[in-house]
Write a protein that binds this DNA or RNA. Sequence first.
RNA 1: GCCACCGUAGCUCAGCCGGUAGAGCGGCGGUUUUGUAAACCGCAGGUCGGGAGUUCGAGCCUCUCCGGUGGCUCCA
Length: 631
Amino acid sequence: MRVLFLHCDLLEYEVREKALPSAEDLPPEKRRGRIEDALVCFISAEHEDEGDPEGIAREAVRNIEDVAQQVKATRVAIYPYAHLSSSLASSGPAKRIFGLIEERLGKTQFEVLASPFGYYKSFTVRVKGHPLSELSREIHPAGAAAREEASEAVKAEQKLVSEWFIVEPSGALHPLRLDGGMVAGFDFAGHENLRKFASYEMAKSREAKEEPPHARLMRELELVDYEPGSDPGNLRFYAKGRLVKGLLEEFVTRRMIEYGAMEVESPVMYDFEHPALQSYLNRFPARQYIVQTPNKKAFLRFSACFGQFLIAHDMVISYKQLPLSLYELTRYSFRAEQRGELAALRRLRAFTMPDCHALCADLGQAKEQLMVRFEVAWKLLEDTGFRMPEDFEVGMRVTKEFYEGNMEFVNAYARRWGRPLLMEQWSHQFFYYVFKYEWNFVDANLKAAALTTDQIDTENAKRFGITYTDAEGKERHPYILHLSPSGAIERVMYALLEKAAFDIDAGTPPMLPTWLAPVQVRLIPVSKDQLPHCEKLLAEFSGVRADLDDLGDSLNKSVRRAEKEWIPYIAVVGKKEVESGSLTVRVRSTKEQKSMRPAEVMENIARDTEGRPFRPLPLPIRLSKRPTFRG
RNA sequence: GCCACCGUAGCUCAGCCGGUAGAGCGGCGGUUUUGUAAACCGCAGGUCGGGAGUUCGAGCCUCUCCGGUGGCUCCA
């Protein structure tokens, strides 16, 4: 922030026209102003100030008080003046900063005149001209000392008191406490993962130190890799990885449409100045990617919320149409996570997020609909290849008030889940929701990552002006549910790979579910004499992802290669098989080696993949034609 | 963002006290034509992550930037 201090006999201004379209209309008394014998402060808010409006405003006021004291001024004028800096703050944050300065100065003994922000003004100043009457200062955002004073929002969060419980399927409640770093208050026997999850959440325990296994696997399997040419947390997907991701995307989307959601598509970037977005944004100023468009500054979306809320804002909705769901799969959502927080596929800066918002007439309908979506998500994860509910641990977050008023709902949820779950109870509502749940995957390094999540949002309908008309013809704000049925697609891949890593440790062959296996069947001729026969067989495997190892290596080597690729059905074709018309197949899931006819293999795959999307092999069918993406 | 560790051939890694770079796999050429997790021989392949510094001389020491991992903070 830059400030030019002028100790003046007189300041007089008159508003001419708006300089910013978003500037608010002014009451007549604000359109002109005059102050005599005052310290006039011309101020430019700069880009670097955006991260901490509270802090910079506090510093500004401190400086103003300081200078005013020196020149013995009792009156102060604040004059937003863009021309002191070449690195201006965006107008949203700037406006907020000026508001805060005015508010804080108002609490001092000074008489304050604040000229409006966002307008062209004509003005007159007459500077006193004594040695101290002209002075400029640069004020930088909170140094270490200033940062200790938390912003209002952070203070509110700090006041937030969390209580932790285990809720059993019976509804029995067990208050948890930390006892020497260990979670106590519940017998976790038989619920080892829940203990790990509770300890991750409550004690912030980080027990392991290795790289997560999936980070290595994703590269070894030629699925996904880091991209040093981009920004951290923006990954590259090779052909096989794109296939897996594409299939998951299709599956989730199909299930959401079957559920009844209306798929929409919204922009990836939004205008900083858009009034509906500002209050939402200002609370989390440092999290976005900023992009400079030809004529404005925009931010990249960090979820599908805005896009869908802005659509919902313009929709005409009757209570008869509720509940009503909008769905979008964002490719991508962007969050400028701190460097140290990124972790391969678990935590990214650019990720693919299915997001489904349901507008509900009232709390009753919201609770009912939440459980409908619970079933959709449960089935989706189960059909993807997870064990439900064993692969996940529920984190449920509620306000105390919600819990006490809706105990039956919480208990019904716990009964449906069928296993004990972790509940965090907040003393008061700090976030926009009163109820939220996540299904967390606990990985080999004992880290928890949320996949499925749904929330009951009581605030954003008001904030974004989303309304429906009720039976009496009155406009009402709906409750909004925020469901991500699977969580980020990359995170689903992470969980599947981490699950496979558990199998490696347990000594069972790791694999992806057959419907996601990049190659489902590999044909390996014992010698090149069987190649023509294999070529013919390929035609029989239409509708599955089959390929042919025609590299001419030894059988041992070819089998090893196929095993390392986690191929579920490896079919060896030698002299015997050509004569009998059968295949000798290694079935990965059962470790069996048995003689099967091609039709049987097809039936097995059809059974494994029933109801899931299919995509053809996105690679050359003959290995001799296939490049390696990495060594 | 802070602290620590790491970055050498496409991949996985070795490289001593600072003296000018090595293996295996993969690729290419040849021999072999194989019955269920790596046949054999040969060849090519390196700004030692980028930049700056110290030094007669830097993969090795110093600074800085980039990338990765772990911890902290964070996760709307």
